[in-house]
């Protein structure tokens, strides 16, 4: 008998759809109203974009293996959100320089992470946790706790408002971004080598792959993507505070795991992470709609993560 197997990204997407349909039966759900349902669906996807993009860097780092994880993501998002806010300061012509600046700053922080991990053999957990502390401290020193600035009108227009056929700009940005991530992972030598170093670094090295260079590049890229995330987050909210990135850290790792990427590296996809981001965002907003407390939301999110990972683990176990 052929056993039914379902790929983790597909499982996560199905879970998201089922949850969404069920949410229609809630007291203040969409019921049978298709227009309301569509609007709600679009809103959920729009909200998932920011977690989805911030978790992209996390995906790369986790695929790269070697106990890879980036705990500086939250702090980098905060720093780059503040940078965007102050550089732009309400002027449209400053948007591109600000974007460039956050990519460079995020990339540099990631570069230091990668260098510490590759050259000093510091474990990724410790290195990026330390970096998170350094960046958070830096934010306090520079801002003294209050930030002045403003986002530009064009940012709000492109990120938070509908741009095409009632679809918000953020979703369009995510679609393009997803295509680029797929291209990077599946259709470049870098992507194939990333999976190789995640699967077995000794084999990768003895197959001519510059593992050190790959590790540094991956963490740098993760920093850059967190920078992009910070830029988009502030563009969406329009305001900034000095903990704005923190709530994204745990979900960015959870989204990767729920999306079926092996936490030990070497296997995974960005589509999985996207589905994971959808599931997590959906659950959070459902629980919020149901007026659940923060504590309950956390418990449900944690339990979801454990359940999904346990299911994937069993699937793999059976196959071997």
């Amino acid at each position: 008998m052929k056993r039914l197997t379902i790929s983790p990204p597909l499982a996560a997407v199905l879970l998201a759809i089922v949850l969404f349909l069920l949410s229609g039966f809630l007291p203040n759900g969409f019921g049978g109203n298709l227009d309301v349902a569509t609007a709600q669906a679009i809103n959920i996807v729009r909200l998932s974009v920011f977690l989805g993009i911030i978790a992209a860097g996390q995906t790369l780092v986790i695929i790269s293996g070697g106990e890879g994880i980036d705990l500086s993501t939250g702090a980098v998002v905060t720093l780059t959100a503040i940078l965007t806010y102050t550089i732009v300061n309400g002027r449209n012509e400053q948007v591109l320089p600000a974007l460039l600046a956050v990519l460079v700053v995020g990339g540099l922080i990631g570069l230091v992470n990668g260098a510490g991990i590759a050259f000093l053999a510091i474990s990724p957990l410790v290195m990026t946790l330390g970096m998170a502390g350094v960046v958070s401290g830096l934010i306090l020193v520079i801002t003294h706790g209050n930030v002045s600035g403003a986002v530009a009108p064009i940012m709000t227009q492109l990120i938070a408002r509908p741009v095409l056929l009632g679809i918000p700009g953020a979703i369009l940005i995510w679609a393009v971004f997803a295509a680029l991530m797929w291209l990077l992972l599946e259709r470049t030598a870098f992507g194939r080598r990333l999976f190789a170093i995640g699967a077995n670094r000794t084999t990768a090295r003895l197959s001519g792959i510059n593992v050190t260079g790959m590790v540094i590049a991956t963490y740098a890229l993760s920093g850059m993507l967190a920078g992009l995330g910070g830029f988009l987050v502030v563009g969406n909210t329009g305001v900034v505070h000095i903990r704005i990135g923190d709530p994204f850290l745990f979900p960015s790792i959870a989204a990767v795991a729920v999306g079926g990427t092996l936490l030990t590296g070497g296997k995974g996809s960005y589509f999985g992470t996207m589905a994971g981001a959808l599931v997590l965002t959906l659950i959070t907003s459902l629980l919020t709609t149901m007026q659940m407390q923060e504590s309950v939301r956390r418990m449900v999110l944690g339990a979801t993560l454990l359940t999904m990972i346990a299911i994937y683990g069993r699937q793999r176990g059976f196959r071997q």
């Binding site: 194939r192 080598r193 999976f195 699967a199 077995n200 084999t203 003895l206 197959s207 070497g266």
Partner: peptide, 18 residues
Amino acid sequence: AGEGLLSIRSILENLLVP
């Protein structure tokens, strides 16, 4: 297994790594 192969990846990818 430890130095020659990427055990969790496909045959295709193992052949093409270098």
